[in-house]
Design a protein around this nucleic acid. Structure first.
Length: 408
RNA sequence: GCGGGUGUCGCCAAGCGGUUAAGGCCUCGGAUUGUGGUUCCGAUAUUCGUGGGUUCGAUUCCCAUCACCCGCCCCA
């Protein structure tokens, strides 16, 4: 074995595929009920899409993209899918349809990072995007969709955290006040925070450095941040969101320190976390991005969305067993076995047989591992035109005609 | 980009200077020539991630290298 799967990538093997299929099925069912339509966009795009869309101050764009040049074009493997969906939304004229336009997607994303538990270079996301609604009911619907989806997967005890970052106008003011609050202890903060201070001060709130966090507490940064007022429209939006969530019976916690790593978010941001995932504890992240469509060259379009990490979801979900096949044909007459297997399959059953026509004991052994029933077709059965049906879980055995088997 | 850990069969592993490189699971064969999931027997690593070095001798010690894992960072 010399060539191996690349660092940070994983084969999803047959014995774990049932979990993936289940997640995708629940996603489809949940989102369809809310009239979200699936969209599949290419896994590579023009590099500009991400530089402009995700934001060139973000880590994702700065150091995590898989970018290459092909025929003088700069191409990037998508590190996330919101930008791609927005691109497709505009390219196919969805913005001329009557809003809302509600889309969901699933698929692989690529980020060049050091892998660790819950973090791979190729990973999978399922996400939703909702375009054209300014009202907070859209934010609430998206959050509800996330909690419904998680509920459908049997995950009920996850914590929804929400916050509002304000619009472009009040965010500017917000940043100024934040910087003012931080200025007194700026020197004590870590190197990253000091550089964030000018480039993207909001991200300082997201810092996990202990020294920084101590300083935040010492200077009561939390209180200061909670005290910063959003503009009237934004604070209205935020309180309406909370009203909707309350009405929908969705539990949430307000986290004034919640900031997202992508530049496009405005107003609402939220995360869903689990305590059972170690340090990569966010299962779902999202928010409102009212400026993104415009940034990418479209008309002003309010929008909200989120993405979930499928690998992380999977880590929280108990393993689903592989399904057994319906019938295993046990026979020492290979030709008859092949014919029976084929007839069973044509009638909608899954069926297998022993390609090596080994002795019955071996065939039964194999059958018991992979099938629910064994169909024994030996000399006596062939001569007298019946099949011995053996239930492999309780060892009961009955003689039946093929037609009777098909009708079961 | 920085810090820590681990590499012995398909999987889980013991061995830690001289062994015939344990054991378990899986797989294959037999006991049982038409009846499995229990039991019993048997088979399966010239080789211990790779390359050097130390040594009479290295899976065991040293160095290098590679791979993977974990943490920071970031995010889903």
């Amino acid at each position: 074995m010399s060539i191996k799967a690349q660092k940070g990538t994983k084969d999803i093997l047959p014995n774990e595929i049932a979990n993936w299929q289940n997640i995708e099925k629940v996603a489809y069912e949940t989102f369809s009920k809310a009239n979200f339509k699936e969209i599949r966009t290419p896994i590579f795009e023009d590099t500009n899409l991400f530089e402009r869309g995700v934001g060139d101050t973000t880590d994702i764009v700065n150091k995590e993209m898989y970018t290459f040049i092909k025929s003088d074009r700069s191409i990037t493997l998508r590190p996330e899918n919101t930008a791609g969906v927005v691109r497709a939304y505009m390219e196919h004229g969805f913005h001329r349809e009557s809003p809302p336009v509600k889309l969901w997607y699933k698929g692989p994303m690529f980020r060049y990072e050091r892998p660790q538990a819950g973090r791979q270079r190729q990973f999978h996301q399922i996400g939703v995007e909702m375009f054209g609604v300014q009202d907070a009911s859209a934010d609430a619907e998206c959050i509800m969709l996330a909690t419904e989806f998680l509920k459908g997967l049997g995950l009920n005890d996850l914590v929804v955290e929400i916050n509002s970052l304000g619009c472009n106008a009040c965010r500017k003011e917000y940043k100024e006040q934040l910087k003012k609050a931080i200025a007194p202890f700026l020197e004590g903060l870590c190197e990253d925070c000091r550089s964030r201070y000018e480039k993207n001060p909001l991200r300082i709130l997201d810092c996990k450095n202990e020294t920084c966090n101590k300083l935040f507490e010492e200077y009561k940064l939390k209180d200061t941040v909670s005290g910063i007022k959003l503009c009237g429209e934004c604070s209205d939006h935020y309180s309406k969101l909370k009203e909707y969530l309350n009405a929908l019976n969705i539990k949430y916690e307000e986290n004034t320190f919640l900031v997202r790593g992508l530049d496009y978010y405005t107003k609402t941001v939220f995360e869903i976390k689990s305590n059972n995932l170690g340090s990569q504890n966010a299962v779902c992240g999202g928010g409102r991005y009212d400026g993104l469509v415009e940034t990418l060259g479209g008309p002003h379009t309010p929008a909200v969305g989120w993405a979930m990490g499928v690998e992380r979801l999977n880590a929280l979900i108990p393993k689903v067993d592989e399904n057994k096949i319906d019938y295993f044909v046990v026979s020492d007459v290979q030709l008859e076995a092949v014919k029976l297997v084929s007839k069973l399959r044509n009638n909608g059953f899954s069926a297998e047989f022993d390609y090596n026509s080994r002795k019955f004991a071996k065939q039964l052994e194999k059958a018991s591992k992979i099938a629910n029933f064994a169909l024994i077709l030996g000399e006596d059965e062939i001569k007298n035109n019946y099949i011995t049906v053996k239930n492999l879980s309780d060892s009961t055995q009955t003689k039946m005609k093929f037609e009777e088997i098909v009708k079961r």
